[in-house]
Computed example of a mutant assay.
Amino acid sequence: MSNLISLNPQRRSEAEQFLNSRIAHPGFRAALLNINRIHATKGFSARGMMFVGDTGVGKTTILKCYRDIYCTENQLETKPKRGKYPIVLTRLNSNSGSRSFLRNLCQKLGVKPPSKETVNDLETRAITLLKKREVELVMVDEFHHLASRDGRKNLDSVGDLLKNLMDLAQVPFVLVGTLKALTVLDGHPELQRRFAASTRLDNLNLSTDEEADKFSKILSACQRNCAVPSVTLSSPAMLERFLLASRGRIGTITNIIETAINFCDMTVGITMDDLAEAFDFCRSEPRYPKCNPFSAPIRVVKTELGRAK
């Protein structure tokens, strides 16, 4: 029976190398600059920014990149156990309220609060830690969870909490999530005033020649970062195939290519058959698209995209 499965399943080193490479969204530089502008408000009248985009578009990658660049260039640790903790990257869970958010923030800053500590005491502790650890910027990922039915019951308390943390610790916040995150501010005018700035990452698309060129550059970067031979990834037809396969999400594109690296015959490299198999393995929506973009004729792909002539 051992011939049916690998007895030592491992991801190929070439796939790990590809995953460790950085594929930058066309809005990468602008997003970094805008985070930097919000970062600059630390210490006096701290401001906030909404940073939104579809799942898999590259938001978390940009957050980590900003933190890594800032800390490396300033010779600071990204997650120091003690002393200055310049940038905190945390996230909301689907049921996050003030208590869980504050406990998570305190733990990020090196202190595990007593389980029975009140919300008011947790808030005081968090403000003290933000000042003591000299935090300059807090980035909160998955903020769109507050837009869910369960999350909205926590909206007022978390909104008031963020306002207090910004005012009393004078630390700017970047709130990150899907487009639903923008609706969170609708019922909270105090947060709207503090988070007047926003940055949006759109999915890759082929709506104009300029957008098609951006898409092509992303796939060309993927090809350069691929340590195995491959069919050309950035041809006009492949742009359409990858668009249908990914809805323009960079994360989905890299997942397909990384999976193809693991599936392919290393003596041959990545073929269209490998991409088709990788797509079937990675797809999260069984009924979309109707065809496999890498095995279907290009006219079928165009038709499903609504680009048939």
Rank of each mutant, 00 (worst) to 15 (best):
residue 238 M to D: 02
residue 232 T to R: 15
residue 266 M to L: 12
residue 239 L to C: 09
residue 250 I to Y: 04
residue 262 N to K: 06
residue 210 E to P: 00
residue 225 N to C: 07
residue 226 C to H: 05
residue 257 I to M: 12
residue 215 F to H: 01
residue 280 D to E: 14
residue 266 M to I: 13
residue 245 A to I: 07
residue 265 D to W: 06
residue 224 R to F: 11
residue 226 C to G: 05
residue 271 T to K: 06
residue 218 I to D: 00
residue 259 T to G: 04
residue 268 V to C: 08
residue 238 M to C: 03
residue 216 S to K: 09
residue 254 T to D: 08
residue 221 A to E: 09
residue 248 G to Y: 01
residue 213 D to W: 03
residue 263 F to K: 10
residue 213 D to E: 15
residue 240 E to G: 07
residue 244 L to T: 10
residue 241 R to Y: 04
residue 263 F to L: 14
residue 245 A to V: 05
residue 230 S to A: 12
residue 269 G to S: 09
residue 273 D to A: 13
residue 259 T to S: 14
residue 224 R to M: 06
residue 251 G to W: 03
residue 217 K to G: 14
residue 248 G to H: 01
residue 258 E to I: 01
residue 237 A to C: 09
residue 280 D to K: 08
residue 232 T to M: 15
residue 285 E to M: 13
residue 243 L to I: 06
residue 242 F to S: 00
residue 267 T to E: 13
residue 250 I to H: 03
residue 233 L to K: 04
residue 209 D to A: 14
residue 256 I to W: 01
residue 277 E to K: 15
residue 249 R to T: 13
residue 265 D to S: 12
residue 222 C to Q: 05
residue 258 E to M: 08
residue 279 F to N: 02
residue 257 I to S: 04
residue 284 S to N: 14
residue 276 A to M: 02
residue 241 R to L: 02
residue 269 G to N: 07
residue 262 N to T: 09
residue 274 D to T: 15
residue 252 T to D: 08
residue 266 M to W: 09
residue 241 R to M: 04
residue 255 N to L: 13
residue 248 G to S: 06
residue 249 R to M: 14
residue 259 T to Y: 10
